[in-house]
């Protein structure tokens, strides 16, 4: 379903609400909010047709700072809310945001199944490896053996790999970005929104209060490789990597790209790769729905009328009643 854009685009400042955020100074969330506002402005999306959902946690407050339809839902349930809204009204541009605990922990069941449906929406996960709002407990992305200062003991559970999980679940756009790389973040959000299908952006987001390991400084560090100085963070596409499937009907290409993506997602290195690991164009949920339900071939569920101007219901039950008339 095509999304409308504004004839005269608004400046990014117009996508800022009048609320001041209450995040800790230095929080990576600021960078992400900025990235979303910039991307929405460049995409020229009408604020009243753009619907931003969030879960619960520090990141859950994000919609309140952005001047579009905003819904701060329940812990772990951001995807069901977003999916429901987009399926009901595909004219809306739907984005979801949430923390790693929200999406990969309490909401992990929804994360898995959202991948199966290819609803046309974007999910941005703020990944800081801790539950910030409850004072720094381990999130599902905190690696085994790590002990940020908020933990009493070293962490002894394994971390999940959100990109690989997304690949296994069927997400059709899978990317990683970084909260303090505004250009990359903005461009990745734009690409995800423009992608027809279910997009995931896992955003590395330093938590200055509870995660003293993966800090802003950590990501800014220079490393040494064979006598050369290299950055901690690099762009995977600059290494010649191409995760975009050109022909989704080409089984061999799809397989190859999928395995390449899986290798890239699990690559053991001190560096951190940003970029689009996998992307494929497949039928979206509403396109498939139109094949099953004749009324939805050229219309969205929200468009279907069910009463006249006098508020009389217009649905004719006679065909269904005929089955049970005796």
């Amino acid at each position: 379903m095509a999304v409308k854009t504004l004839e005269s685009p608004l400046k990014a400042a117009k996508y800022k609400s009048d609320l001041t955020s209450d995040w800790c100074p230095g929080c990576g969330d600021f960078g992400i909010v900025n990235g979303i506002q910039q991307a929405l402005a460049e995409l020229a999306l009408p604020p009243w047709e753009t619907y931003l959902f969030s879960g619960v946690g520090c990141s859950g407050k994000t919609p309140h700072y952005i001047q579009v339809y905003g819904s701060h839902t329940l812990h772990g349930r951001v995807l069901p809310y977003s999916l429901g809204a987009k399926m009901a009204n595909p004219h809306l541009t739907v984005l979801a945001v949430g923390g790693d605990g929200d999406g990969y922990g309490i909401g992990s069941g929804h994360f898995v199944h959202a991948g199966r449906r290819n609803v046309d929406m974007t999910y941005i996960v703020f990944n800081n490896e801790v539950y910030g709002l409850t004072k720094g407990q381990a999130s599902p992305t905190l690696e085994k053996g790590m002990q940020p200062k908020s933990l009493a003991l070293p962490h002894i559970s394994q971390a999940i790999n959100p990109l690989a999980l997304a690949l296994a679940c069927g997400y059709t756009f899978i990317a990683r970005s970084y909260a303090y790389d505004p250009k990359h973040l903005k461009a990745t959000i734009q690409a995800a929104v423009n992608h027809r299908g279910m997009a995931l952006i896992d955003v590395l987001q330093p938590c200055p209060t509870y995660n003293d390991i993966h800090t802003k400084e950590f990501y800014a560090e220079k490393l040494e490789k064979e006598g050369n100085e290299i950055p901690r963070v690099y762009y995977i596409e600059e290494t010649g990597y191409d995760g975009v499937v050109k022909n989704s009907n080409d089984v061999q290409e799809v397989n190859e790209k999928r395995m390449n993506a899986f290798n890239a997602m699990y690559k053991l290195e001190d560096q951190v790769a940003l970029g689009t690991f996998y992307k494929i164009e497949l039928d979206t949920y509403d396109e498939l729905l139109g094949k099953n339900l004749p009324q939805l071939k050229d219309a969205a569920p929200i468009d279907l009328k069910y009463h006249d101007d006098q508020m009389n219901p217009t649905t004719d039950l006679s065909s269904a009643l005929a089955e049970i008339q005796v």
């Binding site: 772990g76 809310y81 429901g84 809204a85 009901a88 929804h110 199944h113 279907l304 649905t315």
Partner: peptide, 24 residues
Amino acid sequence: FGIVVFQCEDELSAINMAIGAATT
């Protein structure tokens, strides 16, 4: 009848998807 009948992964999803849809 054009009703989207959606089988969810669990009831948490069922209720919250229905609410998300209703907000539109």
